[in-house]
Design a protein around this nucleic acid. Sequence first.
DNA 1: AAAATAGTGTCTGTTAGACATTATCGG
DNA 2: CCGATAATGTCTAACAGACACTATTTT
Lengths: 223, 223
Amino acid sequence: MPRYERPIATVDAALFTLVDGGLTLALTRREREPYKGQLALFGGYVHTDEDEDTAATARRILREKGGIALSYLEQLYTFSGKVRDPRGWSLSVAYYALVRPHELQSGDARQIELIPIGKVPALPFDHNRIVELALARLRGKASYSSLPAFLLPPTFTLSQLQDVYERVLGHALDKSSFRRKIESQGVITPVEQMVRGGRHRPAQLYRLSDRHLAEFDRLISTA
Amino acid sequence: MPRYERPIATVDAALFTLVDGGLTLALTRREREPYKGQLALFGGYVHTDEDEDTAATARRILREKGGIALSYLEQLYTFSGKVRDPRGWSLSVAYYALVRPHELQSGDARQIELIPIGKVPALPFDHNRIVELALARLRGKASYSSLPAFLLPPTFTLSQLQDVYERVLGHALDKSSFRRKIESQGVITPVEQMVRGGRHRPAQLYRLSDRHLAEFDRLISTA
DNA sequence: AAAATAGTGTCTGTTAGACATTATCGG
DNA sequence: CCGATAATGTCTAACAGACACTATTTT
């Protein structure tokens, strides 16, 4: 048995969604010390009596604090050290998660604050580092996977899909190249329905071919 | 303050090197229970009084048990749960590391067992999962970065470099395409020296242009 | 000269990027 | 018919993969 004090073990989650089409971080006000009342990532202690593993901890915290159905959850990185938490040597297993906009409506609005990713304020602990890493991971995976589609409703048009990719990646994409790439990768399947709206040609609706994340054989064009 | 017991916090490291040109995993025999005497990854408790963070824990463990100078160290994933360790709810921050073959000579040979990656036996805890994930990460990064070069001496020929890439990736590469890719990415720099040996044309020696990992703008050919 | 490996050249099919064109809706 | 967005087509440059060929050493 160890002679050493066990570190504090917590889980933090960077939760992303779309608000008015823009990539948005969901934060919450801390209910306890330290930093009580401050805006921070969703986070909490590992409950060794009820959590199967740290992914379960993350899901429990988001369920308790927001009541949110996640479309994607992935472990990001584990942050650790003596100084990152005033309570002492700590270890935070960080996750990032995506939520579809219409799912977020069902969350407890009083416990969720939505901040556009360009306007994230200074956060307690090393939460700004976590957000930066989560964004980098999100952008990285967006360039070679179906990840951004998990921010959309179950069915969507190709224009909507291109728009989310552009929002996540942060730059414009060529329509023709984008469609070629997405269709050649077989990650989406047309559904028997069209969207009519506005005075223009109706758009084909699609869904993800697979409920899980699909990786492409090459990168999305960098335009 | 939490009402919950803190989980056990450990660090495990999958250490890779080359032996006779082949990718090899370095293991050690456990000095303590549980699984005392069994072959396992290098691992140990986080020492909150002396370790700056978990990367420092990993370096300390490898220093103590092997006396090894690492050429590369990267956090891999954090494994957690109630059942993975007989001592109780535990959390292992897993790392993987690369060592240059000539550096391994300086390690304590009695504490290191070298196993070709095709012949890794059943290991305690979830160490086989860690090894699999480490290999997958290593192979993934090999296809778009200078990572395999960290398994070579500071200077090397292009033939040696291609050989390590092939060993890590597990398949042959086209010589012409490989050289084009590597040289176009600017990750290596020729040094003022040639290697003469064998009855053939001497080879140009190179070194990495940067001490750090360099990523390519596209994948290495899949041949 | 022969053997062996280092290093270069060339052809071809595929793909990304740019951009133009056609299609189909609502009004 | 017009405005708007959906969807498709075309051209070109860049690149990967395959493979042939040349270069320089030792024996």
